[in-house]
């Protein structure tokens, strides 16, 4: 059980900062998959780019290790913030960013109705629907509902107020539900 206020990732990062390579292996195994999953959703399903972002975020973590102060922030919070920023930068640079005032058009070539499609396809549908959300809504919804983070942590990662997080997740969920509603039967949830 994890003690409140205790961050085992911080202990590992400090161990790495003291020259312990095995601590880096443990940190990568603990945080890497979550970072990759988050980056993949933020980058609208682009797995190759998400892997690059994950590697870059971890490099930044290794660089940070010698100066890491225990108690300054949770390592996972810091890493998700870095990953978020890297993803948003890439979306902006490649013109794929969707601002809060915009909404991406649903693609016309959606698969036809299928009876009880497989889980992988349902997840693909979710990733597609998330990709159509404005970047900040997508970021908030993924952190809240898929990463399972509490609103104050998300506020720290996104550098906004907790109220703004609540607003973004509520709007994001409404938009997702509306987007997926026509496919409810197809997705096997009717």
């Amino acid at each position: 059980m994890e003690l409140p206020g205790h961050d085992p990732d911080a202990a590992l990062l400090v161990a790495f900062g003291n020259g312990d390579l095995s601590a880096a292996r443990l940190l990568t195994a603990r945080l890497g998959p979550r970072v990759l999953g988050f980056a993949t959703r933020m980058l609208k399903g682009d797995r190759a780019e998400a892997e690059d972002v994950t590697q870059e975020a971890m490099v930044r973590l290794w660089k940070q290790a010698p100066e890491w102060q225990q108690g300054q922030a949770r390592v996972s919070t810091w890493l998700f913030r870095v990953t978020s920023n890297l993803c948003l930068d890439r979306l902006r640079k490649t013109g794929r960013s969707v601002g809060l005032d915009e909404t991406a058009e649903p693609e016309d070539d959606r698969p036809g109705a299928l009876d009880g499609i497989a889980e992988a396809e349902r997840q693909a549908a979710l990733t597609e629907a998330l990709a159509r959300l404005p970047d900040r809504q997508r970021q908030a919804v993924v952190l809240r509902h898929i990463e399972g983070m509490a609103n104050p942590l998300i506020a720290e990662i996104m550098d906004i107020s907790t109220e703004a997080v609540e607003s973004l997740t509520a709007r994001g969920k409404r938009a997702l539900a509306a987007d997926l509603a026509p496919r409810r039967e197809e997705l096997g949830y009717d």
Partner: peptide, 9 residues
């Protein structure tokens, strides 16, 4: 891990 090793303090 290769990155970590090259930056191992």
């Amino acid at each position: 891990m290769a990155d970590a090793e090259s930056r191992l303090p």
